[in-house]
Simulated assay, not measured.
Amino acid sequence: MHALQFSGQSSSNGILERDFTLGDVPGVLWSPATRSGERAPLVLMAHGGGNHKKHPAMSGRAKLLVTGCGFHVAVLDAPGHGDRPRTAHDEAEIAEMFRARAAGEPEGPVIVRYNAHLAERAVPEYQAALDALQQLAEIGTEGPVGFWGLNMGTAIGVPLVAAEPRVTAAVFGQHWPDVLTQKARQITVPIEFDMQWDDEHIPREAGLALFDAFASKEKTLHANSGKHKELPRFEADSAVRFFARHLARPNASLS
């Protein structure tokens, strides 16, 4: 297993931001700037397609979780994204997506196929990152872990949560069911699921089918009017309340 290597850090508004690498995979860890002497829950996040670990959506959600709940938040650059080079396969799939878009053809089949390929690479990377992050004294191996990822983040997160018993609550949404349905049926932890009722890319029936596939006894559907990129900002606040409800608990003192 690769060791976690911190490569830089900064602190602002009560948040400590630490860049790290795990092997050749870059990531970022946001934590409370002031150590309380107690361990705190960890939320893993995955960014959307075409974005990166420090995209405003990631840093904004991390700020809410750190300042509002005192949690730690970690994000990895997905394969072919952020500071990671693209392979020839990445370039070919991205070119095909843009070709379909220019021709007025549905992009979904290309995105689903490409995201499944990325997930095969990203899931073991997230598991290795979780192993390494839990070795930090301020996180530890006994604390609860959550996962938050929409769009491509859901494509990575569903197979990750299905395979990873350490994740005990998750927020997903805005993805086609297709290759995710079987994995969703293996997930029983509490779920909050976001979808856009007027999504121009993901048919309403497709979003509902993925939500329905989760085997969780507690799962909540948040359907908002609007197109794919019009997910209301208040859904981030709802997700933070969801994680606070399911992850927050008395923390063990650091030894």
Rank of each mutant, 00 (worst) to 15 (best):
Leu133Lys: 02
Ala116His: 06
Ala119Phe: 08
Pro109Arg: 02
Ala119Tyr: 03
Pro106Ala: 01
Ile111Glu: 09
Ala116Thr: 08
Pro109Ser: 00
Glu138Pro: 07
Glu105Cys: 01
Asn115Ala: 12
Ala102Tyr: 07
Val110Arg: 01
Glu138Tyr: 09
Gln134Asp: 03
Ile111Val: 06
Ala122Glu: 07
Leu136Val: 00
Ala129Lys: 14
Ala102Arg: 10
Val123Pro: 10
Arg101Gly: 05
Asp131Cys: 04
Arg113Leu: 09
Gln134Asn: 02
Arg121Cys: 15
Leu130His: 08
Leu130Met: 08
Glu105Asp: 06
Arg101Met: 01
Glu125Leu: 11
Leu118Ser: 03
Ala119Ile: 01
Gln134Met: 05
His117Cys: 14
Val110Phe: 09
Ala128Glu: 15
Tyr114Thr: 09
Ala119Glu: 07
Arg121Tyr: 14
Ala103His: 00
Arg101Glu: 03
Glu107Thr: 12
His117Gly: 11
Val110Met: 03
Glu138Trp: 06
Ala116Val: 08
Ile111Lys: 11
Ala100Tyr: 02
Ala100Pro: 03
Arg121Lys: 12
Glu138Ile: 06
Ala119Arg: 01
Ala137Trp: 03
Leu136Glu: 01
Asp131Ser: 11
Glu120Cys: 14
Glu107Asn: 07
Ala129Asn: 08
Ala132Lys: 00
Asp131Leu: 09
Ala119Lys: 02
Ala116Leu: 13
Ala128Ser: 11
Gly104Asn: 04
Leu130Asp: 04
Gln127Met: 12
Glu120Arg: 07
Ala132Ser: 11
Gly104Asp: 01
Glu105Tyr: 02
Val110Trp: 05
Val123Tyr: 15
Ala129Met: 03
Ala137Phe: 05
Ile111Leu: 13
Gln127Leu: 14
Gly104Ser: 02
Ala103Met: 06
His117Asn: 15
Ala132Phe: 00
Gln135Gly: 06
Glu107Phe: 12
Tyr114Phe: 13
Val112Phe: 14
Glu120Gln: 15
Arg113Glu: 14
Pro109Leu: 07
Tyr114Asp: 10
Leu118Thr: 12
Val123Lys: 12
Asp131Gly: 10
Gln127Cys: 10
Gly108His: 07
Ala132His: 04
Asp131Ala: 08
Tyr114Pro: 04
Gln127His: 07
Leu133Glu: 03
Glu125His: 04
Ala128Met: 13
Gly108Arg: 13
Leu130Tyr: 02
Val110Ala: 05
Ala137Met: 08
Gln135Arg: 01
Glu105Arg: 05
Ala103Ser: 07
Ile111Tyr: 05
Gln135Ile: 03
Pro109Ala: 03
Pro109Asp: 06
Glu105Ile: 03
Asn115Trp: 14
Gln135Asp: 06
Tyr114Gln: 02
Val110Gln: 14
